[in-house]
Amino acid sequence: MNDPREGPDAATDPATWRDAGLREHFTSTLDYQVNLFETLGAYRTMVLRHAQWLDTGSAAAYDGWRVAETAYRDARDVHRQRYGTDLDLPAYNFTAADLGAQRADRDPAMAWAARGLLGLILVVVLLGVRGRGFGGAAARGLLLGAVRPWRVGALPAPQSRSDRVLVWLVPAVVLVANRLVFTWFAAPAHLLVTLGGWALFALVVRLVVGRRDPFHLWAVVGGVALLRSVLLLAALAGRGPGKYWFAFWTAPALRTVYVTVAFAAFCWLFVATAVVLRDRYGLRRRSAVGLTLTAAGVPLGLLSGLVAAVGLERALTVWNDQMALLPWGLSRILGITVYLGIPAGLPGYAAVAGAALTAVGLLLSIGRGPRTA
C-alpha cells in the first residue's frame, strides 16, 4: 500500500492550506490509518494461513502460516514503536490477537503431546491384555473397569504395592495431562473446574468405600477416566486444540457424533461406579445408585456455588481470557452473558440442582446396608 504522503493531499503546496498544522495532522492521520490497515491485514493473513493448515495439514500451509506470523509480528512491533506514546494517534490494542497467536503457536506441540499420551494408554491396554508383569494387575483392572466393570469385582486384590499405586496414579497423570494439552497449558480456570469435578467425585466414592480395599474402585474410576481421555486425545492428536475447535465449529455432523459419544462416556462413569459399589463392596442396588448420585451431586453443587460466588460474568471472562475462544472484547463491551443470552442465575440453579441430587442420593442410601449373602 502506498504511503499517503505520496498521494495528492501530500503533494499539494503547503501554502495552499490555510493552516499548516492542520495539513500535518491530516497527513499524519492518513499515515496512521495506512499503517494500522497494513498491520491488521498481516494479522488476517496469519489467521487464515493457520486455519488453512488446521483444515488441510499440508506442509505448504504450515510454512505459509509461519511466514505470515513473522510478518504480522514485525508489523505489530513497528506499529507499537511508532505510535506507542502518541496520545493523538494511540497504538492499537493487539491483546486479543496475541492471545490467539500464542495458543496457535502451541498447536503442533500439543498434537505431539496428545500422541504421546495415546501411546501411554496403548501400553496400559497391552499390559492389561497380558495381565502379568510389572503393573500388569493394575492395567488389567483399568482395562476391565473401562469396558466391563461388572467383572472388576471378581479380580483378586493385587499383592504388589506398585499395582495399588499405578491403578490410580496412571489415570490421574493422563487426566491432568490431557486437560493441560486441551487448554494449551494456558487455562488454569478450566483445569480448576474439570479436574476439581473429578477430584470431588473420587473423594466422595472413596469415603463410601471406607476402610475397605479401594483397588477395585480406582480400577473402575480410573478405567473410565482413561476411556474418556482416549476420546479427547484422539481429537487433539491431529493438529492440537486448534484443530479440535476448528472441526467443532465447522463440521456439524462430526460435532454431533463427538458430543454424543462424549456424553455417553460421561454417563458411563456413574453406571460403572454404581456397578462396582454393588458387586465388589456389597451395597444393595438402591444404595449403590444413591451414593453414586451423591458423588455426582457434590462436585456439581460445590463448583456451581463457587462460580456463583465469583460471579458468572467474571468467571466466564477469566475463562475466555485464558482459552481465547470468544472475541476478547465481549466482556469488556457488552458482557459475555448478555451477548450470549446466558441467565446470570444459572450457577445458582446448578448449585441447587447439585444439592438436590446429593440429598436424593443420601435418602436412597439411608438404611440400606450391605447385602446379605
Rank of each mutant, 00 (worst) to 15 (best):
V125H: 05
L126F: 09
L127V: 01
G128E: 02
G128F: 01
G128T: 06
R132S: 14
R132I: 12
G133F: 12
F134V: 12
F134Y: 13
F134C: 07
G135P: 02
G135L: 06
G135H: 03
G135I: 01
G136F: 07
A137N: 08
A139N: 07
A139R: 04
R140T: 10
R140C: 06
R140A: 13
G141F: 00
G141Q: 01
G141T: 00
L142H: 01
L142T: 03
L143S: 03
L144Q: 05
L144G: 01
V147R: 11
R148Y: 10
R148F: 15
R148E: 12
W150E: 14
R151T: 15
R151S: 13
R151H: 13
V152N: 01
G153I: 06
G153V: 05
P156T: 05
A157M: 09
P158G: 02
P158Y: 04
Q159E: 15
Q159H: 14
Q159I: 11
Q159T: 14
Q159C: 10
S160C: 08
S162N: 11
S162I: 14
S162L: 15
D163I: 01
L166I: 05
L166F: 13
W168D: 03
W168N: 01
L169T: 04
L169P: 02
L169Q: 03
V170Y: 03
P171Y: 03
A172V: 13
A172I: 06
A172T: 14
V174P: 01
V176I: 11
V176N: 02
V176G: 04
R179V: 08
R179L: 12
R179M: 11
V181C: 02
F182H: 08
F182I: 06
W184G: 01
W184E: 00
F185H: 09
F185Y: 13
A186Q: 12
A186M: 13
A186K: 08
A186I: 09
A187K: 03
A187M: 04
A189R: 09
A189E: 09
A189C: 09
L191D: 10
L191E: 13
L192K: 06
V193F: 15
V193G: 01
